[in-house]
């Protein structure tokens, strides 16, 4: 098979990366970053890692890009007369980066053959759990504790963003996400797209057990639909003191914890699943996590409260 498309992909990736670093305007740089994310997800597809590709597209390019664009809108242009690092520091930084890059390149270019891997071992137990997607097995079974703690990180990140709320506004709603001038096409899109997007999100979650997809990808798609509706001003972001909102945020981690502790009684210990019920439990946990991820991502983009509670 021709290597030409791959070379082109690598070339575009490098160009977009250089553009991201070199761009003098914040917005240009962020757009470069989003392009890098999308090209990276193509690269992952070429490497047959569809799960990583979906996550990169949804989180790396999509959600992060949106966050950065919102930040740009609030920050205004970069002031160039600010302090430039001095020449010795810049040379030192350059030399250090070059050394690290050279060492990494040496290691990557002369890999160990055959590369040691856990893939066969990971695949060996898949049938025990009745799942078809090795990535899901790794995330929800072998390394379930990491996945659980990563969701706790998300909750902590949300608390960190909310911590920036002025004291008097605590409990209120984040500022409106509406664009400066209302736009007809956006409103139209926000009315038409969500039903389709929600189906795709649910499909990714449901499908994740056996084929590429899963909680983070599905959750991000759901969050995107919610954000679209908020940006078109069809719905306002909810107040951060709302009990229902808080409960949705912790719903996923709580279900995961309950499933984990249930393992003490119905299987052999924390976060272990009984073989006969492994798949339903894992799908349930995934669905709960995806819901929480969607709510958390949406609220992360919406930002700290900007209006006093009603």
């Amino acid at each position: 098979m021709s290597l030409l498309p791959d070379f082109a992909l690598v070339l575009f990736l490098l160009m977009a990366a250089v553009w991201t670093v070199a761009a003098r305007d914040r917005r240009d740089s962020v757009i470069g970053f989003i392009v890098v994310g999308l090209l990276l997800s193509l690269a992952w597809i070429r490497l047959n890692s569809v799960d990583v590709a979906l996550t990169e597209a949804a989180v790396g390019g999509g959600a992060t890009g949106l966050l950065l664009l919102r930040a740009c809108a609030r920050l205004g242009p970069i002031e160039t007369e600010g302090a430039h690092p001095q020449l010795p520091l810049r040379i030192l930084t350059g030399v250090l980066c070059a050394v690290v890059a050279a060492a990494l390149a040496t290691i990557v270019l002369f890999p160990i053959e055959p590369a040691p891997t856990l893939a066969p071992a990971a695949a060996a137990h898949m049938s025990e759990l009745g799942l078809g997607n090795p990535v899901t097995v790794v995330l929800l079974a072998y390394r379930a504790i990491d996945t659980l703690l990563e969701k706790v990180v998300l909750v902590l990140a949300l608390i960190g963003v909310w911590a920036l709320t002025p004291d008097l506004l605590w409990g209120g709603a984040p500022g409106s996400l509406r664009a400066q001038q209302s736009s007809g096409p956006l409103t139209f899109l926000a009315q038409v797209l969500p039903p389709v997007g929600i189906v795709i999100g649910v499909y990714l979650i449901w499908n994740g057990a056996d084929r590429p997809g899963g909680t983070f990808q599905g959750g991000t798609v759901l969050a995107a639909m919610w954000l679209l509706v908020m940006m078109a001003d069809l719905r306002e972001p909810p107040e951060i003191r709302l009990h229902k909102l808080r409960q949705l945020v912790v719903f996923g981690p709580v279900v995961f914890l309950v499933a984990g502790f249930a393992g003490f009684w119905i299987a052999n210990g924390f976060l272990s699943y009984p073989p006969d019920f492994a798949k339903p439990i894992i799908v349930l946990v995934e669905a709960a996590l995806a819901l929480s991820i969607a709510v958390i991502l949406g609220m992360l983009v919406a930002g700290p409260a900007a209006r006093a509670p009603r």
């Binding site: 079974a141 072998y142 379930a144 504790i145 299987a267 052999n268 272990s272 699943y273």
Partner: peptide, 13 residues
């Protein structure tokens, strides 16, 4: 020592 989920390292934690 505790082995999470009963999955021995290096597969588990």
């Amino acid at each position: 020592t505790y082995v999470l989920g009963g999955w021995q390292p290096p597969l588990g934690i």
